[in-house]
Design a protein around this nucleic acid. Structure first.
Lengths: 242, 242
DNA sequence: CGGACTATTGAGACTCCTCAACTAACGTGG
DNA sequence: CCACGTTAGTTGAGGAGTCTCAATAGTCCG
């Protein structure tokens, strides 16, 4: 992993380990947080790492060394296919866990798509900590469960035939996952190519899809990195039109 | 849930909780098992339920009540789309965990596609047990992690354009997941419709894909519920041709 | 102010989906 | 045991949509 601005700091109290709860419906928000002791515990083994855009955190098939927790910025997890094409498996946002390996090897390559900050935790230390602290482990279990559902939603998007519908569903997911984008404005931190690789489309099809959404007066795109839903009703209808 | 042949029994010692290990590469197989104490513990709260084909275990959007562990047979987890189409998110095989909910509601409907036996565990009891036994919880964490990867592989399959290639990848996955199918014979317990809904294809396209694989001398299908790879080299090439 | 990269737009080829008819397999009841 | 009806699966023809190739426009950074 490229070394960038490595600093040891405490784990911030706020949405560090934010997850959708897995068993009961929470009263207001679906946020669970670590307690003070757990934050201290994690902070004692975690390293906060800041990196610029396009930094590779780890490559697929390399040996597992660290587990990561995204803190700021956006990253992508992707695989290179034999033909040279890339498939983006997921975008990673603050609070997302990544680096879970299979048989000691990472399965995806992870790269930042914006300047990003992550917590880097040695695998052994984390594993041991999880075995000692069931409550902490439960947070991780909840996080991974959330990843399963995200993967299933991704599958539903991929199964759609029309590019505009896939794009709309993607925007819909971003809108819900990124708390930053209130009031109808949806940030699109990643490139069109990234979106294409996530949606299983060609770059050109993504471009045509955005044009179509724009032309039909459903969504406008400003500067290519943010979207605004004009016609909410038709937008929702398109999202649900599978 | 439909009541069928409910019986309380001990958890069998063998491949009840079989998972791919998450951190280190195991020496021979990638199997981890529960110890005696954990089996006893689980058995004290789990109910073994046997059901015929086409039994619905739970429906999407209903309240979470139990968590399940597949023991025998095959089931499918799917969602009904607004248009009435179905998307199969996953097939569930012995050892698979299912029923993890979101905000207290199941996200998929689960239905048996063969006669099946599952372990049914009350959610509260399981949660409490996991909080008390980190080792047991770690098994579950490993299982859910495995589900994440399966979902990502599913996504890669869905992103393919050619039906024959998707079918080949599906057979490849089944071959690796189902230990029953040695010596090149791959069992296909589910219907063509189920396969279509899993692969994001129409039933007709699946049928044409099997015909094509058969005609090209790569795979033969016997009776519709088992496949045999004739030309392994071309089969692998097709699988990797993404 | 270049220059390279990213994104948009157009035209033709390819693949799958839909609709439809037909065949095969299965289970039920007489 | 057989006839029947229902369900599952196969095959064909036309239409919808995306992919590829290619050229153009826009954007960001040095």
């Amino acid at each position: 992993m490229a070394r960038h601005a490595v600093e040891h700091v405490g784990i911030e109290p706020s949405p560090f380990l934010r997850t959708t709860q897995f068993e009961k419906r929470p009263p207001q928000s679906s946020i669970t947080l670590l307690n003070e002791s757990q934050r201290r515990q994690l902070a004692s083994v975690a390293t906060r790492v800041t990196m610029p855009t396009r930094t590779i955190v780890f490559r697929e098939d390399t040996a597992l060394e660290w587990i990561f927790l995204a803190s700021e910025g956006v990253l992508k997890a992707f695989r290179e296919m034999p033909s040279g094409k890339r498939r983006v498996a997921a975008f990673l946002f603050p609070g997302d866990l990544f680096g879970l390996a299979e048989d000691g090897r990472y399965v995806n390559t992870v790269q930042s798509v914006t300047p990003a900050t992550v917590y880097r935790i040695p695998n052994e230390a984390l594993t041991e900590m999880l075995r000692r602290d069931p409550e902490l482990q439960f947070h991780f279990l909840t996080k991974v469960t959330h990843a399963v559902r995200q993967g299933q939603r991704h599958g539903i998007v991929l199964a759609r035939r029309d590019a505009a519908g896939r794009m709309a569903m993607f925007l819909h997911m971003l809108e819900k996952d990124l708390p930053g984008g209130r009031s109808g404005t949806i940030p699109l931190p990643m490139s069109r190519t990234d979106v294409a690789e996530y949606l299983g489309l060609s770059l050109e099809s993504v471009s045509r899809a955005t044009s179509a959404l724009s032309r039909r007066g459903i969504v406008t795109f400003q500067g290519g990195h943010s979207a605004y839903v004009i016609d909410r009703a038709r937008f929702e209808k398109l999202v649900a039109a599978l």
